[in-house]
Nucleic acid binder design. Structure first.
Lengths: 133, 133
DNA sequence: ATAAAATCAGTAATCGTTATTGTTTCTATA
DNA sequence: TATAGAAACAATAACGATTACTGATTTTAT
């Protein structure tokens, strides 16, 4: 691990993610931060997102839809991903601890965590007349 | 949905996936099939993997590590992914139906499926002397 | 104040995947 | 069985997300 020096950009990225209740991609972070830092670089955004998630200060969500998403909410929760609009909603399930126990019984190694995504059609898409296929 | 005509390449791709107990990437499929079809194209592999997974004949696994993986085993199961070597192991959990019920209680839409991955260090890596960090 | 090291902006390169194009292979019908 | 239209192909270019590189800037310890 490097010495990790303060940087205004990294703080801004962290702050930005904390204020968002959706789950922006690196590119969204980049675009939004350009208002505050007109010449921040996309590489800087990526580097700091990786840094922050390695430090465990943000969560990285890989959601099938090409780009990765980032989540400033560290409280334990899962995601409901709409198969139509690909929006990511927070959702909370209680039984995670017992799931890990279950998995440990047959896993070929030490189980440390799990990632649980639910898929379906969100209400908004259903209301907009999208009914599967 | 297109008319879907027979193709030797698609059959070979399906057969290949059925015989594998690991979870190859498109590139692995491509490399291995080149022995049987010396000039099969990577585009053909991608197109048919997408086709087969749209038909529900194979499963697509997105595993964080850059590339997508494919699974010829359609029986319901989950995956244990080693955080060190990134190998993907099969694992079976019973409670999936009740998980979906739980999620449905609070999800902002109709829950149709879930994806459940477990993470940790596999026995092989543990034995090879890798002990976290 | 200063110097070493981390971070930066800018940009080129890489990687996985998809799209395009002109050719080949299936398959239905004659 | 010949043949014509459609689907699939190989080859390759294009694309989007991410990473690597380079020389300038910022932070921090002295």
């Amino acid at each position: 691990m490097p010495a990790l020096k303060y940087s205004r950009q990294r703080e801004a990225i962290r702050r930005f993610l904390m204020t968002r209740r959706d789950h922006p991609t690196a590119d969204t972070v980049y675009t939004c931060l350009r208002e505050e830092f007109p010449n921040i670089s996309l590489g800087t955004v990526y580097r700091n997102l990786t840094l922050l998630s390695d430090l465990g200060e943000i969560r990285r969500i890989s959601s099938d839809s090409g780009a990765e998403h980032f989540d400033g909410d560290l409280t334990p929760h899962q995601h409901f991903i709409c198969s139509h609009c690909h929006r990511i909603y927070d959702i909370r399930i209680d039984k995670i601890a017992s799931l890990l126990d279950d998995a440990q019984k047959t896993a070929p190694g030490k189980v440390e965590s799990c990632r649980l995504n639910f898929y379906g059609i969100c209400e908004q898409c259903a209301n907009d007349g999208f009914n599967e296929n």
